[in-house]
Design a protein around this nucleic acid. Structure first.
Length: 224
DNA sequence: TTCCAGGCAATAC
DNA sequence: GTATTGCATGGA
């Protein structure tokens, strides 16, 4: 008999179909990039295509998107990313040297702009120091502004490392289904998924996206 | 108007 | 070690 973690995945996938995370501003194939079944922004998704990011620029875009979306809705992040793209600033070398004041203004729509501009500049320097190599989770966590969820999001969606992303939605889902205890830590919940699912980055990417989609559709929000 | 969103670091206890 | 607080915009 299949365990509940796998059954939940299969039922969410059946209900919502592949989500096409992580959204990117520009996809090479213009036919895809929209998903009318999705809540919120429908831009930049690529259902059933797990080959993204295809370019170095897209990889970096995912990294800074992961930072910009900290406690922030995606449409707001998209506005900030568009501002950066217009000036061709989705580029580690350029962002590592930009003035923080200037960057704050550009990313203003994403909120917390003074903190996030600092985070982006620090991260850009770190990113350059990698010289294209995949960072370890510990390395990412040592960077100011990168916490557990952001580190795992970057690894999973930018670097295709099969590490499970836990967020508020994940907790809400598991908790409502009595699959976890409220006192469980981030890493305990992460392991709950990782020990029950084979380490395939495509499944981890899809599962996390499905959890987010499912919770977004639950109308009466349970208070924190 | 109030509430909240794909968290994090700093501070308080 | 765990709990609380500041950060900020835009949409519902």
């Amino acid at each position: 008999m299949k365990n509940k973690i796998i059954i939940l995945y299969e039922s969410l996938l059946l209900k919502y179909n592949p989500q096409g995370w992580w959204p990117l501003l520009d996809l090479h194939d213009s036919k895809i990039g929209s998903n009318p079944t999705k809540t919120g922004s429908i831009r930049g998704y690529h259902p059933k295509d797990y080959s993204y990011p295809k370019t170095e620029k897209q990889k970096f875009e995912i990294c800074i998107g992961a930072i910009l979306t900290q406690n922030t809705s995606w449409p707001n992040v998209e506005k900030a990313l568009m501002n950066l793209k217009k000036k061709d600033l989705i580029d580690a070398k350029k962002l590592s040297k930009i003035s923080q004041t200037k960057l704050s203004l550009l990313i203003k729509p994403s909120g917390y702009f003074n903190q996030k501009s600092k985070k982006l500049i620090i991260f850009s320097k770190f990113y350059q120091s990698l010289n294209g190599k995949t960072p370890s989770r510990e390395e990412l966590l040592s960077v100011w502004g990168i916490g557990l969820e952001t580190a795992d999001s970057i690894l999973l969606y930018a670097y295709k490392v099969p590490t499970f992303v836990v967020d508020a939605y994940t907790r809400r889902t598991l908790s409502s289904m009595n699959l976890m205890k409220d006192y469980m830590t981030y890493d305990e919940i992460k392991l709950l998924f990782e020990k029950n699912i084979k380490k395939d980055y495509r499944i981890y990417q899809e599962y996390h996206a499905l959890i987010v989609e499912n919770e977004k559709r639950i109308k009466p929000r349970i208070k924190k």
